[in-house]
Structures are given as structure tokens and as C-alpha cells.
Design a protein around this nucleic acid. Structure first.
Lengths: 347, 347
DNA sequence: CTGAAAGCGCTTACAG
DNA sequence: CTGAAAGCGCTTACAG
């Protein structure tokens, strides 16, 4: 407790501890790092002196000199740290990293390639040991360059083809395909599709599932029912309201993303049609089961995506797997029937 | 593009750039850091050489030698990066930090003091410039010690009294008080209270609002209607179900947290009582407005809490405000009427 | 088992 | 305006 003053003082370094304890600098380093082969008496003296002086180890300096140059920090480029999918993935990454005493930096690209590039720059500038990114698609060249420089990278949620960059994706196409097939088997023939910006890989995949199912059923797609460039709930709401008030409205709606599902449902409720028109969303969200009818969804396991991505990354960070070719893991989706997807055509 | 090989090579340092460009190390440093007073010709040569060699600046080394020793990184200790309140706060902090070219490390304490301590340790070990934490309450001494060592700290969401540690909280007590008063003015006399673990400051404050309103109204609290140690939705659901099936059930329920509100509503729906018993929740959540009836809530602005916390922290990090005494900012709540809170007693 | 010296990749006085 | 030297707080051979 002595010397626990409040005034600003210069940092206590290993040097100070060494001098005070009457040992060499290397010995202090050994003790602090828990390395074996130091006389118990010295271990005690150093530990005690360090505590008494309020010594705080400096990992940044340590990693600078260290052979492996690891900072024990990885970075995460998400779409938005605040969106449910991103943040569930984030949490899974944190948990996996924590077991290896690794911390995680996170940032939001908001789907802007420029912002993705800035984040990657800022992270590599700080010498993170690895990167998990939900790529916008517009920064792939930079990702490739960073990878070539030696930093391990795993891309999550979206597929990219870069040397030694692993990916963890969800079976967007098949999950959508199966959901649309369910609608068709219930008798639906006029199925609307609401999709996110086409620059996003998952958006294209989900549409591919929608189109694939139609081809399989030898059914033609009515282009008037397809809207593939929707940003957010409000856009989905407007489009849905318009679709429902045309001469030939859809009997079912497939909303290929979270917010679009909410927007579509809002429009349905506005028109009192939530029990008359089927709705299936891609990606679950809280309380979807508490609505009446509950919203049926193709659910994706964000935590599993995160956990898998973290595992792949840490394998490369540790070095053992770093020279392996790119590995691509696909996490399955699951259809959750809650009512809205089970509404038959014609009320 | 030349020399863009794939093989592992040692890092290109400023030294390499200096040698190659035929200038001194200090000049390279000046150019890379954009410092004025270098001949245009040298700036060009250094910039070009750096690019050609694939030089990547190392911020960790830079900050080690730099006078201010800043890492341009701050850390965030949240309850859970994946919960909506925490992640909305996180996003606001990210946005504020980004304007100052500062990155953010985040971690989840899960309300465990031990985990909070580990995170604080890990962050300070990496020499972050400052800390924003949602304190569990069990690590306040460590926070105080870190602060004394010089690292600026802002506590968000919960009040703590530590020298030169700022806080940003929400008016939990008054927000609850006003909501309960609304219930009473509509005729409710038997109002149940569902609360989170009492170790959490906000949980205590919200109960204080509930109790305060009762005292103000000279109404006695029926202890059988009060449950102050509920963990999560399922616990709230069970307790609510039990409350509703007693001889003297409540006519209204105040759920003092997100998940508790959802759990209570589930129980109400299970019993078909969602239109018969009033419900007000503390803290809004997505889609609460799409349920029938919509759930009335005391809404808190997580983004504003985050933004304010970040501003206070960055003010101290910059140094200008670092010697100031603790500042305490309170963000107001807002009552959002959606129907469930407007149900009168007796159906 | 221990310590003096060198050096990680930078910035910062200092002298020119 | 420019560069050689010192040093940030550590770890790592190396010699004892």
C-alpha cells in the first residue's frame, strides 16, 4: 500500500523492479512471464517487489521484441456491431478467443467497402494476429494483400476466393430453396421475393435459391413480384403495401433478410392481411414467435458461424495450419414453422 | 507490383525504406507521419519507396517510443456484446471513437465481477488509452486503481463513486416512478414488480422508483407481488404465470428489464390475458410495437448513453480534462404508450 | 540458474 | 531542412 499516491508518476518498468529487487532485468522478465528455471527465492523477491512497486506489464512492448510478434489480439469487421446477427457472431468469437487469452477489436463496415478498407488498415496498423471479416465484396484485393503479408484471415457469412483465406458461410441458397418449395407444396403459385442489395453475396445466394426452386418446379417468375434492392424495413414495408394492393397480389412473400421481414409484416398488419398472406423470412429475430401469427423463418446460427470462424482463425494464428489452402465451412440453416409460413393461398 | 511475391519475408521497416531511398531514418519517420518541413522531393522519394517496398507502419512500435504513449485504442467492458442495449451503446462509442481515429476493443462481463476484472487487466496490459465500462459493482476497487495509475475511465449505465471517474446513467428511478404512477392513475392498485438481480445498480434504482411511487401514493406494497431476483425471460415467465393464477392476482405488471418483459408477456399470452392485465416494461426492444397489444415501455436511449460516455472519455484521453473531478451525466427516459400499459384494471 | 548486451520498429531531442 | 544517436519497455541469444 505504501507509495500508493495519487500524483502522476512515471511508469514503473522492469528495470525499476530489477534494480529494487537487486537482480538482472532478464530475471524479472523470466519471473513475470512465468518461465521455469528461476530460483524460488528470486521468484519470491521479484514478485513481491513488482507488487510493491505497482509494476504493470506492458504487452505492447513485450510483443515488439518477442520472436512471434503476437499481440494476442484479433479483429472483427462486422456489418454493424449493433445488429443481432453481427453481435451474436461477435459474442461467439469473443468466447472462443477468450479461451486462448486473446482479445477482440471490432468495427462496423455498414456494408461500405471504403469503411471496410479503413478498418482493415487500422487493424493491421495495430498488428492484430488475425482478422475475421464479413466482407462487403469491395475490399477483396486488400484482404488478399494483407493475407499475403502474413496475417491470417477468415471471411464469415460471405464467400470469397482468396488464397489461404478460409470462409464460413450458411447454406443461403438451399435454405431459401427449401422454404419456397414448402410454400409451393402448400399451393402457392404467386410468391413475392424481397431481397437486400445485390452487392451482398448472401442476397444473391438467396435469390438463387428462389429462382432455382422456380426452375425446378418449371414455374415462371413473375418479375413484378421480385424486388431485389431493398434497404431496410421501411423500404420493404412500402413495396409490400404496393404489391398487396395490385390487381394480382402475391399469396405468399419470401423476405430474404431480417429487417425486410419486419417491414413486410408491418405492411401486412397495416392492411389486416397477416392471416391471409403467407410470409417466410430469412434469419430469425427476437419475439418473432410472439406475434400472431408467429413468423416462420429460415433460421441461421450466427453463434456457430462465429465459433467456426474463430476456430479456423486461431488454428492459423497458432501457425500449425497457416500454410494450408483455403478451407470452406458451410453451416446449415433450419426452417422454423410458426404459422405465417403455413398460411394456404386464398385466405 | 514488382516483388509482390507470395513467400514469407521479413517485415519491411523504416530502416529499409531509409536505406533504399537514400535518406535518414528520421526523415522517413517525418514523411510517414506527415510532419511538415521535409523537402518535397524527399517526401516524394520516401513515399514512393515505401509503396514499392510494401512498407506497413507499425503503430505499436510507434506508440512505444512516442511521448504521449497513446495506442489510439479504447476498451469497452459490456454486459454482453450481443445484447441489444450493450450493442447499441457499443455502436455509438465506435462512431464517436472513429471520428478521432480511435479503435475499440470490446468484451462481455456477463455480470461477473471476476470476468470484469480479467477484462480490465487484459485491456490495461495492452495499454488502451481509456476504458468505458458497465461496472458489475464488484470490481470498483480495481477500477479505482487503474484510474489512479492514469488511465481515464467512464462508467456507463451504472453509478459508481470513484475519483475522476465519470458516469453516464439513465434516470431509472424517475422513469419507473412515472410509469407506475400512470398505472395507478388508471386505477391499478395491485401492481406486480419483476426485477433483475439486486447486485445491479439499475435494478435497485428501478425498484426504488416503484417503492417511491407507492410511498408517494401512501399505498402499501404487497410483497407477494414483488420478485426482485429474476434471471432472464424464463424465470419471469414462470413467476408471472404463478402470480396470475393466485387468488389475488395483480391487475398490472411492471417488468424492470428487457428479457423480463418478454417473459411476462409470454406468460400473459399463454393464459390469454394479454388484453386483461396491464404490462409496462423498462427498456424497449425490437418489434415490441408489432405485438397485439403493443408493449408499452420506459425507453432508454442506449446510443445517447454511449455517445455521451465516449465524449467524456475522449475529453480525458486528450488530456485537457483529465484532472477534472468526476462528472455525472444523466440521460432521460421516455414513456412509449403502445397499449399494454393502457389496459385498465378488471379486464 | 543468472545477468550484461543487443535489438524489436519506431520517435525524439540534438547537432549540423 | 536533414541525419546519427539515444531510448521507449520489453525479450532473446549468449556467456558465465
Amino acid at each position: 500500500m505504501a507509495g500508493d499516491g495519487d500524483s502522476a508518476r512515471r511508469t514503473v518498468t522492469m528495470r525499476d523492479v530489477a534494480r529494487q529487487a537487486g537482480v538482472g532485468l532478464a530475471t524479472v522478465s523470466r519471473v513475470i512471464n512465468g518461465k521455469p528455471g528461476v530460483a524460488p527465492e528470486l521468484v519470491r523477491r521479484v514478485t513481491e517487489t513488482a507488487r510493491a512497486l505497482g509494476y504493470r506489464h506492458d504487452l505492447t512492448a513485450s510483443s515488439l521484441r518477442r520472436a512471434d510478434r503476437r499481440t494476442a489480439t484479433i479483429a472483427l469487421v462486422l456489418e454493424d456491431v449493433a445488429n443481432p446477427f453481427s453481435s451474436a457472431l461477435h459474442r461467439a468469437v469473443e468466447d472462443a478467443a477468450r479461451e486462448a487469452d486473446i482479445l477482440v477489436l471490432a468495427g462496423s463496415s455498414d456494408e461500405h467497402p471504403d469503411r471496410e478498407r479503413e478498418l482493415i488498415d487500422a487493424f493491421t496498423l495495430r498488428r492484430v494476429d488475425g482478422l475475421i471479416v464479413l466482407p462487403t465484396g469491395g475490399a477483396d484485393e486488400q484482404l488478399a494483400a494483407v493475407r499475403r503479408h502474413g496475417t491470417p484471415i477468415v471471411c464469415a457469412d460471405r464467400l470469397v476466393e482468396i488464397d489461404r483465406v478460409d470462409t464460413v458461410t450458411v447454406d443461403n441458397r438451399d435454405g431459401t430453396w427449401a422454404a419456397v418449395r414448402r410454400l409451393r407444396s402448400r399451393g402457392h403459385r404467386r410468391i413475392a421475393f424481397l431481397g437486400d442489395q445485390e452487392t451482398i453475396w448472401t442476397a444473391r445466394q438467396r435469390y438463387a435459391g428462389f429462382a432455382g426452386e422456380h426452375a425446378e418446379a418449371r414455374a415462371e417468375i413473375d418479375e413484378r413480384l421480385v424486388h431485389r434492392d431493398l434497404h431496410g424495413a421501411e423500404a420493404a414495408r412500402e413495396v409490400t403495401a404496393r404489391l398487396l394492393t395490385t390487381a394480382h397480389p402475391p399469396t405468399a412473400i419470401f423476405a430474404a433478410q431480417n429487417l425486410l421481414t419486419m417491414g413486410a409484416r408491418r405492411a401486412l398488419q397495416d392492411l389486416g392481411l397477416q392471416d391471409g398472406v403467407a410470409l417466410i423470412g430469412f434469419d430469425d429475430f427476437p419475439v418473432a414467435d410472439m406475434l400472431a401469427p408467429g413468423i416462420s423463418v429460415v433460421s441461421q446460427d450466427a453463434a456457430r458461424v462465429g465459433r467456426t470462424a474463430a476456430r479456423l482463425l486461431l488454428g492459423r494464428v497458432r501457425g500449425g495450419e497457416d500454410q494450408l489452402a483455403a478451407r470452406h465451412s458451410v453451416v446449415p440453416t433450419r426452417y422454423v414453422a410458426r404459422g405465417s409460413g403455413e398460411i394456404p393461398p386464398g385466405q
